[in-house]
Computed example of a mutant assay.
Amino acid sequence: MPTCNHCGAHVSDQFARVFADETGAVHACPSCSANAGIAEVARERAPEA
């Protein structure tokens, strides 16, 4: 069951497929960021690759 690495909230498998980084980590979800900016927030929160 995937979870948001930032807030720990459960996210669906489909959400994780779309928004997870290349390692499978989800750095932002609807519980801790605005829906319109999830991809941008996830990029900001992800550690530098």
Rank of each mutant, 00 (worst) to 15 (best):
33 S>Q: 04
32 C>S: 10
7 C>F: 01
14 Q>R: 11
41 V>L: 01
31 S>Y: 06
30 P>Q: 02
17 R>P: 10
13 D>G: 15
49 A>C: 07
13 D>V: 07
40 E>L: 08
14 Q>G: 08
48 E>W: 00
25 A>Y: 14
25 A>P: 13
17 R>A: 12
15 F>G: 00
8 G>I: 01
7 C>V: 03
1 M>F: 10
30 P>L: 01
45 R>W: 03
41 V>K: 10
24 G>F: 01
3 T>I: 02
38 I>H: 04
47 P>T: 04
39 A>Q: 06
37 G>S: 07
7 C>D: 11
31 S>H: 04
30 P>T: 02
38 I>C: 00
24 G>S: 04
24 G>M: 00
12 S>H: 15
23 T>H: 12
35 N>F: 01
6 H>M: 11
13 D>W: 09
24 G>P: 05
27 H>F: 08
6 H>P: 10
31 S>P: 03
23 T>F: 00
9 A>K: 09
4 C>G: 10
33 S>Y: 04
23 T>V: 02
27 H>D: 03
43 R>G: 15
41 V>R: 05
27 H>L: 03
28 A>H: 09
19 F>Q: 13
5 N>I: 14
19 F>S: 08
49 A>P: 15
26 V>L: 09
6 H>R: 05
41 V>M: 00
15 F>K: 06
8 G>P: 10
46 A>H: 11
26 V>F: 04
22 E>F: 03
15 F>M: 00
26 V>H: 11
4 C>I: 12
41 V>Q: 09
11 V>C: 10
33 S>M: 03
20 A>W: 10
47 P>D: 06
8 G>N: 04
11 V>T: 15
34 A>D: 13
45 R>G: 11
36 A>M: 08
35 N>E: 03
25 A>I: 12
13 D>R: 15
3 T>E: 04
24 G>W: 06
11 V>Y: 02
42 A>W: 04
22 E>M: 07
48 E>G: 01
10 H>N: 14
19 F>T: 05
38 I>G: 08
12 S>N: 12
18 V>M: 06
37 G>M: 05
19 F>N: 14
40 E>F: 00
39 A>T: 08
11 V>R: 12
11 V>M: 03
32 C>R: 05
29 C>R: 05
2 P>V: 00
10 H>P: 15
48 E>Y: 01
4 C>S: 10
9 A>N: 13
2 P>T: 08
47 P>L: 02
29 C>W: 02
46 A>E: 15
31 S>G: 03
43 R>I: 11
22 E>T: 10
40 E>V: 07
14 Q>W: 05
18 V>S: 14
37 G>Y: 03
21 D>S: 14
6 H>I: 04
2 P>H: 08
13 D>Y: 07
17 R>E: 03
3 T>K: 12
33 S>L: 00
26 V>M: 09
27 H>Y: 15
31 S>W: 08
25 A>M: 10
45 R>N: 04
36 A>N: 15
8 G>F: 01
3 T>G: 09
22 E>L: 09
25 A>G: 12
38 I>S: 11
14 Q>A: 09
49 A>M: 09
17 R>M: 08
21 D>Q: 13
44 E>I: 03
39 A>V: 13
